[in-house]
């Protein structure tokens, strides 16, 4: 089998280099895409689509993820939120607001010793579950917290 492969490689030497060049050419756009803003995920209109497009198909419920957010947010334009993941090897945290027009609010990727913790402020259209999705060791975990919004914060 190996001999055959060797012969094939020799025989198609010239064509091979072209193929490699094409492969390299093809590789480049995907690498660029990886570093680019995940448009599909952020434009997804449903939770299921948004979860899928960040590669979190069926996350497991976890008690090791804590979401700190107010029970009642008076102003939906500024809702303080903290996500703490105590799962070892947490690689990323994504925050979803289930009832926003586009549920994915933000994704945070950690490296070089950054702890599974993030604190920010988000906008919420109306009362909704705020869901955190954590990726760790090739698995995805999730937890959610209900936040009631008195005045919505998306749009006029």
């Amino acid at each position: 089998m190996n001999h055959l492969r060797r012969n094939l490689l020799k025989g198609t030497g010239a064509a091979g280099t072209v193929a490699v060049a094409i492969a390299a050419g093809l590789l480049k756009p995907s690498q660029v895409l990886a570093a680019e803003w995940n448009k599909a995920a952020f434009n997804a209109k449903t939770m299921a689509d948004a979860m899928k497009s960040i590669g979190a198909g069926a996350p497991l419920d976890s008690k090791d993820i804590k979401i700190k957010a107010p029970d009642i947010a008076e102003n939906g334009a500024v809702v303080p939120i903290e996500v703490i993941s105590n799962i070892p090897g947490t690689e990323s945290i994504a925050i979803f607001v289930e009832k926003n027009a586009t549920p994915l609010a933000a994704e945070f990727k950690f490296s070089n010793g950054t702890e599974g913790y993030v604190s920010t402020r988000i906008k919420m259209l109306k009362s909704s579950l705020v869901r955190a999705v954590v990726k760790a060791g090739g698995k995805t975990y999730t937890a959610a917290k209900e936040v009631k919004v008195t005045i919505g914060g998306c749009g006029g």
Binding site: L104, E107, F110
Partner: peptide, 21 residues
């Protein structure tokens, strides 16, 4: 140490807090 991707759902004048061991 941290890479973020944000949507329109992040509030005006964004706040970001994180911890680096």
């Amino acid at each position: 140490v941290l890479e973020c991707e944000w949507s329109i759902a992040i509030s005006q004048n964004p706040f970001l807090g994180f911890k680096v061991k």
